[in-house]
């Protein structure tokens, strides 16, 4: 589904990604973990070209990210959920969710609304359709953001530390929605510090440090029997 080949990313002199390659299969849930500054968010953002790799190739669902047209096409198929939600503050929840299907997919307004309501039900916020983002809690906003991404019927969902900006008691409501998505067979790439989620939901864990993939494998293998010293050191600090 996603194939990342030898990508490098440099911000000026800063070499953030160093020769990273990865494959993500259909219906796979891949969790990327690692210390801050390890390049995990940058890698995720390269997948839909919010960051442009300095070198290397990315192919999503058979489409290479080479031209502006291709990039837009891929973005229609790849949903993204941000750490800081990034809901549109001047629009209601309903408008947030239905905007892209109407403008990008040219879906009729009535159908977009109907589908938005179904999605709101799915994330447990049927009663918030007419609310504005600022009237919602962080957890609710993030669930709306997930619904907004799902409204485009993406083939892949990217999550960039989706629970890092949330109060602790709201983390689970968001993780639950993500868990449901995973069970339904959504292809997901999740950057997170929630190790419980990684173990329970992840099909594969990738550990990154200093711009490289240090180790990857089944969650239990990585968490219980890490091969690399750096992985062990990182896990010992957070588990």
């Amino acid at each position: 589904m996603i194939s990342i080949k030898n990508i490098h990313k440099k911000f000026g002199k800063l070499h953030v990604l160093k020769d990273v390659s990865a494959h993500i299969a259909e219906k796979e849930v891949v969790v990327i973990i690692g210390p801050s500054g390890s390049g995990k968010s940058t890698l995720l953002r390269c997948v839909n070209y919010l960051e442009q790799p300095t070198e290397g190739e990315i192919i999503v669902d058979g489409i290479p990210l080479t031209s502006e047209a291709n990039i837009n096409k891929v973005r229609e198929e790849v949903g993204m959920v941000f750490q800081r939600f990034n809901l549109f503050p001047h629009m209601t929840v309903m408008q947030n969710i239905s905007l892209a299907p109407v403008k990008v997919r040219k879906m009729p307004q009535a159908q977009a609304k109907k589908e938005a309501l179904t999605l709101l039900e799915k994330v447990g916020l049927s009663d918030k359709a007419d609310a504005y983002p600022e009237q919602l809690s962080g957890g609710q906003q993030q669930r709306v953001a997930i619904a907004r991404a799902l409204a485009m019927k993406p083939k892949v969902m990217l999550f960039d530390e989706p629970t890092s900006a949330l109060d602790p008691e709201m983390i689970n409501e968001v993780l639950d929605v993500m868990k449901t998505l995973a069970e339904e067979g959504m292809t997901m790439v999740v950057v997170t510090h929630e190790m419980g989620f990684a173990r329970e939901v992840g099909d594969r864990v990738i550990f990154m440090d200093e711009g490289r993939i240090v180790e990857e494998g089944l969650p239990n293998e990585v968490f219980l029997h890490a091969k690399e010293e750096r992985t062990k050191a990182f896990l010992s600090k957070i588990l």
Partner: peptide, 8 residues
């Protein structure tokens, strides 16, 4: 970023 990531 949110707008662009939705394919707009």
């Amino acid at each position: 970023e949110a707008g662009r990531s939705l394919g707009m």
